[in-house]
Amino acid sequence: MLEFFTWIDNSMLASMAKAYGGVFVVVQMFHLLALALLGGCVLLADLRLLGVLMTAVPSETVARETDRWFNLALLVIVLSGIFMTGAVAMKLYYNEMFWAKMTALAVGVLFVYTVRRPLLRSAAHVSLSPLALRGMALASLVTWFTVAACGRWIGFS
């Protein structure tokens, strides 16, 4: 892993980000805007499963619509995130919060694409165990909150 970070630190990506400070800032802004969209989708979808928000719209519809925008937001976040990592690779390699965030992110992505979506698409939501749906919604909220909070804290630590 250290080798990978040393490599990315010496790559063209890093030189570009280091030479033009403005580029880093612009990319960071896209990262932040995509965070709002991703967080909004997670929040809406999970609060719908918990029966708090948008109960007048079928749960399946909410899941389907938020999934689409979640995908786009995640793509923007990952691409901009890789660029930002390239710019400060060595600093991040020795930052505990960065690894906490990456761990939470890996858990979150795996959870969404291997557990959450297959389950929510397997059957009508009313036929699924309410306890399982609620547990899943809570786990999702906690995971994505952790990703975002660790991300912000990288800047402080």
Partner: peptide, 25 residues
């Protein structure tokens, strides 16, 4: 910063609906 997900997240979804890009039906 994290409250952006609550405020801006909801606002984006509402605006996307107005544009017909989310929850179109």
């Amino acid at each position: 910063v994290l409250t952006l997900m609550v405020f801006l997240g909801m606002l984006m979804l509402i605006d996307l609906r107005m544009l017909g890009l989310a929850f179109a039906d």
